[in-house]
Design a protein around this nucleic acid. Sequence first.
DNA 1: TGACAATCGGAACATCGTTCCGTATCTGTA
DNA 2: TACAGATACGGAACGATGTTCCGATTGTCA
Lengths: 205, 205
Amino acid sequence: MSDETTIPADGAKPAMTKEKRVRADAQRSTDALLEAAKKVFATSGVDAPVREVAERAGVGIGTVYRNFPTRSDLIAGVFRREVDACVAEATTLANTHPPCDALSLWLHRYTQFIATKKGLASALHSGDPAFATLPDYFRENFEPALAALLNQAADAGDIGGDVEPYDLLRAIGNLSVASGADGAAHIRRMVDLLIQGLRYNGSAP
Amino acid sequence: MSDETTIPADGAKPAMTKEKRVRADAQRSTDALLEAAKKVFATSGVDAPVREVAERAGVGIGTVYRNFPTRSDLIAGVFRREVDACVAEATTLANTHPPCDALSLWLHRYTQFIATKKGLASALHSGDPAFATLPDYFRENFEPALAALLNQAADAGDIGGDVEPYDLLRAIGNLSVASGADGAAHIRRMVDLLIQGLRYNGSAP
DNA sequence: TGACAATCGGAACATCGTTCCGTATCTGTA
DNA sequence: TACAGATACGGAACGATGTTCCGATTGTCA
């Protein structure tokens, strides 16, 4: 609480007070940039040149730096956007599936999110201020999302209600680190196991 | 065993067959470079520019690249040199202290070695071929050194003899990862605890 | 429609890793 | 000791990359 950065660092829409309306072209650039960066980072890794992202997005380099003052800010922006996408899917799944199915489907979706974040692991702890708020952003968004799914499944009597959402998020995250050759399959099995555990937890008091 | 590099990658003196004698100035450059790099990396981190190392060593950039074809080779060279220094100290301590004291003193010396390698952790797993042989070099040198100290202490009846040297090396390494604010002190306490454990292990069969 | 401000594009700059090559130095020999 | 060839040295130069700057362009609102 001493050296805490005072910059909000919210990469999206603050919407507080009356923010001057963003110009349409600016909004388009930001979207194209985030979309292009997501693909480029997935293909060439987070070390890919900024110019490559600019080219793929069909904008000039200057535009990149107008939207994201630093290369790290661009990376952080992609991270936040993917957090948002994954969190949004929790609601979608909850509305289109039985509680326990929704929970299971989302946890597997979450492992995919984690899988794309391998390259970021070292960057997160690099001390770069652009990444400072990312762990909080991660938790503040994922924890309520998973909590909602868990509650619905618990209310339906499918699982027990004594699981800490954050513990589960961390557990799956750690599970995904050790993945070797058949990584994806291994992770899938282990997550299924966790879900089974939740079920038993519900039926056997 | 398929994609194993065939390059020896021994940064020091091969000495096999009859190697042409190295010129005196070349040897001086290599030493100055390793010494300078050690200090620069300790001060500015392993990301410090090669030019900074060259300047501190008092040589031109060309000379850096003549001795270390790649920036990563320079880092690896410093790493090996520090391994050598730490290993050499094991012998020194064994000759100047009672077995159990030597063991204790060296383990604490080893924690210092580990402490300076934080920045390398991610580089080690980066896939850079210059770092490929480092883990082996680490183990091949440290394991016998610690084994000798453990044996001497065991022969003197100070500790039990059923500790795997490599396990101990890893344990202390892992211990050092988690260090937070009072890191050094915390590590010291934990290592002392391990040593206590070794002692009890000897007196209470 | 017109004017103002926000945005854009990309040339230009600074920093890095790395390469090249003319020059300086060392070493073994006469 | 003096010489010649081999070896090493220094640093300019190159290509890549992050970042800055500014004139040209475009969107928005009256």
